[in-house]
Nucleic acid binder design. Sequence first.
RNA 1: GCCGGCAUGGCGGAAUUGGCAGACGCGCGGGACUUAAAAUCCCGUUCCCGCAAGGGAGUGCGGGUUCGACCCCCGCUGCCGGCACCA
Length: 800
Amino acid sequence: MKYDFKKIEPKWQKKWEDAKLFEAKDFSDKPKFYGLVEFPYPSGAGMHVGHIKAYSSMEVLSRKRRMQGYNVLFPIGYDAFGLPTENYAIKTNTHPRVITDANIEKFSNQLRSVGFSFDWSRTVDTSKDDYYRWTQWIFLKLFDHGLVFRDKTLVNYCPHCKVVLSNEDSQGGKCDICHTDVIQLPKDVWYLKITEYADKLLKGLDTVEYPEAIKQQQINWIGKSTGAFVDFTIDGVDEKLEIYTTRPDTLFGVTFMVMAPEHPMIDKYQDRISNMDAINAYRDECAKKTEFERTQLVKDKTGLKIEGLEAVNPVNGKKIPIFIADYVMMGYGTGAIMAVPAHDQRDWDFAHAFDIPIIEVIKGGDISREAYTGDGEMINSDYLNGLTNKKDSIAKMIGILEEKGIGHAGVQFKMKDWAFNRQRYWGEPIPLIHCPECGVVGVPYEELPLRLPEVKDFEPGEDGKSPLAKIPEFVNCTCPKCGGPAQRETDTMPQWAGSSWYFLRYCDPHNDKAFADMDKLKYWMPVDWYNGGMEHVTRHLIYSRFWHRFLYDIGEVNTPEPYSKRSAQGMILGADGEKMSKSRGNVVDPLDIVNQYGADTLRVYVLFMGDYGSAAPWNDSSVKGCRRFLERVAGLTDLITDEKKKVSYETLLHKTIKKVTDDIEAQKFNTAIAALMTLINEIYKEGSISKEDLVIFLKLLSPFAPHIAEEIYEMIGGEGFITVSEWPEFDESKTVDATIEVGVQVNGKVRAAVTIPAGCDKDTALAAAKANDRVASFVEGKKIVKEIYVPGKIINIVVK
RNA sequence: GCCGGCAUGGCGGAAUUGGCAGACGCGCGGGACUUAAAAUCCCGUUCCCGCAAGGGAGUGCGGGUUCGACCCCCGCUGCCGGCACCA
């Protein structure tokens, strides 16, 4: 058969769509499979080869599962709100709705041209009001349950994008979108109390099947630490200074305390502080530093003694000085620490810079040179003296603290609450109302969706205000509680909102009574397998787990965790081995490949190019190799005969069925394809193939290269679609050869290979080995010490 | 600094998890077809010595366990990713 991909690919795409082969049925007697991929942000640049690889694993799995008789839900949608679109809207003076619609149109055409088996009837668009209505609905539920709060703090602010950024969006002190240096700005910010879910998010990881690397990253990100809170009294002041420490057992080694520059007690007791001017000067200096500069690990600690305030160590009554220093952060623990320079390197550095005494309380190090953080015998610590294990000494100290009422055990998390607003237009309006009488009031549920008003000017307002603030008709409203005049919140939600629950909407995308019907959720959820990028592990993956867990806690969904299993694809690098980027000029457009070689070639190539989970560079020659393979597949139609197949061929066929079946499940697509290549090489060597065997081959190939598989199947008279035909079964007994070749080692070195009957005993195998000339020559004249035969694997003769 | 991962031919990568290292593909060399090129097909291709038969070395480095190690253990080195003054 001539391989005319330009004709056959659109032909089958249309036939599949007309036959509605990929539409999932709600409820069915078949087992269900919900395969999820991260929906794309519909950028103007269109699809990237990375998208193809990211979607191909679930694509192959979904196609295989359909053939295996599953009711498959494999949906797609668009994460359509976001800054790039808005920035483009400003630049071109076009409404973001228009841009978004055009981009979605483009994306969906591109995705279709690759032949992905998505259920297009369930497509969602997070920027449509029938979708974001429910995003707002969930937000209001969070608000009703006290998980939304407002706080005035220093926020990460991008002067270029003019938006407040979460810590996640400003990693490394750079804006995630434009890479401008992030500055600190005091602002009123809405937060979601994700920290309240820290423990649940941590524990939930034990119940899901994620790769260890992903679990570790999330564990790190959540950053649970166990320790104790301890109250220090301040001399002459009727207020305790509370600190958090992981080593309460070192309390006798405390020689000073440090407060973060922003610590509220400083202002509160400024009348007692004699060097307030100097302190304010230091604080100003700190405020100028970016979060990034401040968190840079530096040996040269800066700080200042607070003159006029003195703390008292609660365990021994000793008076100790208090400093402010920017190595202590207001955002972690209590914003103040007890400093134990002998056993904490940062405290040690500070003590050296400020000439503060150092008291050793744990033996084992040389504290004149550096802090000792290891285990050892407790000394200089009264009732703790002599204990040698930190677990025991910590437990004992916490017991004493609790008994005396000066402290208690506690935990801390590194994870911060989620800054949940942007001063931008193209996002979900936050459904809250500011009433001068009632305070902050939620928009009534029945008034949702709170639609984005039409505006002409998308430029952010001055001092970081949302463009919505410029529209009086939107801003001015009546309070739903008291009916008095009130004002709407004008900020919108961050990019991550819509994607935090989209997998639920796929279960019931057109529902206008609820975000999804509970029975449908019960049928489809949880997602059986979610594939996506490593870059989303600490943001999207945690945020969506948080929302889902919250919905579970209030009885709106049926499972605590949304995803049973998660996997991640490796990046496709440019041909030069570098990350693909426009500036490097190494970007490959998937549509070029579709046009030049065909969608099937592209699909096979992205899965064949290497280990699915690892990064691999693009290689044009290898693409051609995959095309060559498909040409050989097309050529099989010329080899069809009715001849009986050889036993050796039948064994290979069954081995291949087994390998492809297993490898797809393990995401070892490269070796699955390699097995198909091996089989086709063998078929060509034989020079013929029966129609029956060809069908088996095509079925195995069809998840990878469905268009060509369909075309040949139709041509040789196959009934219906191969896409929904039955997946081939293998006969385990036929996957083993009658005779096998095993290596023969002499003293562990391979010297020969002998062919022996598959199930033969040790004596037969050894006899065959010794009969081999080469083996004999190595054994001759020596004494056989040991003989080993591992059935089917190896023979080893040890001689002396 | 802490956490995780990786290291195999000229290249991407295989190796049933302790049993013939280099499957499959690319590239390269040789040949066939062709006036020629492309395409296609056949043969070869880890490295070193050898015309060959054959021999030796070999999975980042150094040790160890084992009849046998890419795989397990101990000690390094180098890359990649994440977190990071987290008390």
